[in-house]
Amino acid sequence: MRSVELFAGAGGLAIGMASAGFQHAAVVEWDHDACETFRENQLRHAHAVEGWPVHEVDARSFNFGTLGQDIAVVSGGPPCQPFSMGGKHQAQRDDRNMFPEAVRAVRELMPKAFIFENVKGLTRKTFASYFSHIHLQLQYPELTRRKDENWMQHRARLEQHHSSNKGQATYNVLFDVLNAADYGVPQKRERVFFVGFRSDVGARWSFPDPTHAEDALLVSKWINGTYWDEHSISRKRRLEVPLRYAKHVELLRTKSSLLILDRWRTTRDALSGLPDPEFVRDHEIPNHVFTPGARAYVGHTGSVLDEPSKTLKAGYHGVPGGENMFIKDDGKVRYFTVRESARLQTFPDEYEFHGSWSQTMRQLGNAVPVKLAEVVARSVAASLTLASLQPEL
């Protein structure tokens, strides 16, 4: 099935889509360093991106008419700074809001389905009106905004159409906030996903169930000790149940045998096998270079090794720092290297990043975790395949 990837960034969602079996007809991204990341990996024949048609262009000027009409899925993460906690909070007034271009792609390509991802901040009450505007536009992409309409007037017209419409919406659209840690990503990263299916496709779909759980991690650490065994950590650590978990761990002792999900993956899991670049400089691991200067202070602390990491962030005014460093076993803090950050975002180790440390960390901070993208994409692909096998009524 052919797909189109918009606002591709470092390629997390696009790689996940490809891993799920989609073939990219176009990968659109305006940032030069991100496009160079794609090109350099293609020159090295990295399996993840080989053969991708990369277009270094602003999505607002991309001609979707050149791609034909057999696009199965459009996917992408419209720039999220307008809605992020660290951004300017301007939403529809921010010129980095690319949701209108996502809607245009759906309108012009009429794919069987689409997958769009954004920051959890989009679901805040502050943006509730604009959130509903996005939802309605995705349901009825053919009802475009008129020249004399502002977005609120357009939303009102869409609401009237929706409430009076006797037939189906053009697209059946679902949305939900997913935590990447619940799907095997070693990072607590909550993102909102919009997934829509064209009504005439007849697809039946729901968001995939979590595969990993915090309870299973607590059991592996504080009840059966298998987590510490995996990392060859002394038995003494197993007795030090943090006070905030003590009561819950006691409850888990009575039902630990009933847990069926895998445990959350941790920062230590992600960094396993990588040398400490502060002390080992003669390794040949790409993008694994020590960056000095990390320090902790109130409200600016690093990720804990034995939990999923904090959410990696790009930062509007550069890399924030607190979310992009971790606390070592000796209590000191160190910045994640680009390779370590790529592990936290579940990029394959063969995938290398172009640009300075701050630029590559920005690419990674904006990315969709590859593993989460693949889980969602596989579920969409399965529903489309099943729908295509159903006899027409």
Rank of each mutant, 00 (worst) to 15 (best):
L251E: 13
F290W: 13
I15E: 05
L393Y: 05
V74L: 05
M152E: 13
F197D: 06
M152S: 09
A26D: 06
R124V: 11
E278K: 15
S272N: 13
L67E: 08
A14C: 12
F290Q: 00
G225Y: 05
R378G: 05
Q153P: 05
R263V: 06
M110F: 06
M325Q: 14
S129F: 12
K188A: 11
K166L: 14
I327N: 04
G184R: 02
Y183M: 08
L252K: 02
T144C: 11
S163P: 00
Q160Y: 12
D200Y: 01
Y297I: 02
V103E: 04
L389W: 10
P79C: 02
V28I: 15
I71Y: 04
G65V: 09
R204K: 14
S84T: 15
A270W: 08
G321D: 12
K112L: 11
E36K: 14
V4L: 05
K147Q: 12
F131M: 08
E108M: 07
E307H: 13
D200I: 01
V73Y: 03
L43I: 09
D209M: 12
G86I: 10
L261N: 11
L6A: 10
L67W: 03
E250S: 10
K371A: 15
A246M: 10
G225C: 04
H55R: 14
A382V: 11
K147S: 14
D330R: 04
I15K: 05
S358T: 15
K255Q: 14
V298E: 14
